[in-house]
Design a protein around this nucleic acid. Sequence first.
DNA 1: GCCGTTTTCGGCCCGACTGTTTTCAGTCG
Length: 568
Amino acid sequence: MTKSEVIKILNEIGLLLELKGENFFKSRAYYDAANKLEVIQEDIQTLVSENRLGSIKGFGKALTSKITELVTTGELEYYTKLKETVPKGLVSMLRISGLGPKKIMTIYKSLGVNTIEELKEACENNKLLDLPRFSKKTQDKILEGIKNYNEYSEKFHYPIGEVLSSELLKYIRESGIVQRCEVAGSLRRKKEVLKDIDLLVSSDEPDKVMDLFTSHYYVKEITGKGETKSSVVLQNGMNADIRVVSDSQFPYALHHFTGSKEHNTALRHLAKKQGIKMNEYGLFKDDELIVCHNEKDIFNVFGMEFIPPELRENYGELEAAENKELPVLVTNEDVRGVFHTHTNYSDGNATIEQLVIDCMNRGYSYLGITDHSKTAIYAGGLTEEDIKRQHEEIDLLNEKYHDFKILKGIESDILPDGSLDYDERILQSFDFIIGSVHSAFKMEQKKMTDRVIKAISNPYMSILGHPTGRLLLSREGYKIDIEQIIEVCIENGIVIEINANPYRLDLDWRHMKNAKEKGCKFVISPDAHSIKEFDYMRYGINVARKGWLEKSDIINTLNKDEIVKYFL
DNA sequence: GCCGTTTTCGGCCCGACTGTTTTCAGTCG
C-alpha cells in the first residue's frame, strides 16, 4: 500500500470517529498522523520494515501497529469494522456547510437519513422540525448548504482569487475608514488552488467596514455578519471572509489568519511550552501583552527568523526558522530569461521577433524557443523543413539583437515507447530539448514511469516538461512514480520544469523541497503561447517559493553567458 | 490516540458567529 493511500485512510478514520462522537482529540491524532506522513519524505515501506515509525512524534503504539498492518497486508481490520458501523453517506454530509458530526448523527439516529438526497427530501418535508435544537431556520440553512454544495463545491484557480481580492482590497482601502488592509489565508500563502478569500482590516469603525464590505457589487449573498467578522458568497460562487481588528492587533491577526492551520497549531504549541498564550489578538505572558509591531517581531519572540507566508505549511519551517536555516527564496527579479515558448510556427500566436522584443522589455536576456514536435499534429508540430527554416530565422535574429540570445529548442513529445520525435541528425541541431508527455495518458504507473525514464536517459534531453501532466481542478496527472523520476533526472543532469501556467503548476511544490535537497535543478517556464502568457512566470515563482527553492536551484536565474555555457 | 524537565493521568490551540436558548452547543476556520 502506498503512502498516499495510507494518508487517505487515516483521514477517513478521523472523520468516522468524529461522526461516532468519539473524543475529538482521538480523531485529531489520526489527522495529525496523516499530516505528518505527508511531510515525511522517507519511504513508508522502509519506515515500517525497519520499525522506525514508532520513534516519530505523534505515532504511538496504536497508530504504529495500525499503519504497519495497512502497509504490510494492505488491509486494516479496525478500519473495515469501523466503516461498517457508519453509513457511507454520512461522511459526505460532513462537507455540507453548517452540518457537523453532532447534527448529522442526530438526523441519522432519529430519521434514518443516510444520504444527501434523503436529507434534502427530509428537509423539504419538514421532517427535521421535531428534532431537539432544530427549527425551521436550521432546516432552511441545511437546505441552503445542500444547494451550495451541489453548485459551489469546487475550488478556484489562484489567479481568480488574485483578481477578485485586489479589487476588494482597493475598494476597502479607498473608503478611508481603515488603517491597514491585507489579504490573508491561502491566497497570501500562494496556494495553487483556493477555496475562499480572506481579508484582514484594522479600523476604528468595524461596523462601517462590515457594511462597506457586504455591500460591494461582487457580493451575491451574505452568509454571516457580526461585529468583527463577516462572510459572503461572491457572484462567481467563491466565499470571502473579512475580519476587523484594532491597528495594534493587526500583526497578530495577520499571522493568525494567514495560517496555515497546521502552522498555527504547531506554533501555538511551541508558545504554550514557553508559557505564552497566543491568539489573533496578541501574545501574552502572564496576561501581559508582548508588543509586536509586525510579523517579524512575532517570530522574533520565539527566536525565529521571519517565515515568508509561502512557507507556512508546517513543512519544517518552524524548526528551520529556529535554527536560522530558512532558505533565501527565489524572487521574480532573479529571473534572467525563459524557456518553453511556442511561436506561430506551431500553436503560438506570436512571431519569434515579437516574443524577443517583449522579453527584452521585461528585462530578460535570453529566450528558448520550443515549438511542438512533428507528432503533435493537433498543435501544428514542426516538420524537418519547418525546423530548418526556424533555425535560419533565429540565426538572423541573433545577429540583429546581439545583446540578446535566442536558443534553439523543441518541445518533443515523449512517444508511448519513451523515444523522442525526430532522428539523431535533427536532435543534434537543437541547443536544448524539452521532453513532454502529450499522449497515451492512461498507461499504468510502471509503464508510464519506464516510458519517461527512457526519455530522460536520452542524451539529447535537457528538460522534463510538465512532469505529471496534471490540469488543476480538471485533470489528474498521469500515474507516475515521481520520486523515482526525480532521482533519475538528478543522475542524468536533466532539469525539471516548473510549468508556470496557473492551470498546471507542475511539478507540484510539495515535491520540490526534497528534490532540491538531493541536488535537483529546476527551470521555471511560462509555456507561453502568446506574449501575454509570459505573465505566467510569477505563478511559477509563487510555487517555487512554496517549494523552498532558492535562486541557485533554478537555471533561468543564470545570466546570458552562464546559460550559454550551460547548454552549448 | 498521544504525550510528559510539574504529570503514566489529564490534558490536548483558540475564538467568532449562529441559532436556540436564557447560558450554551454546534460549527467553522
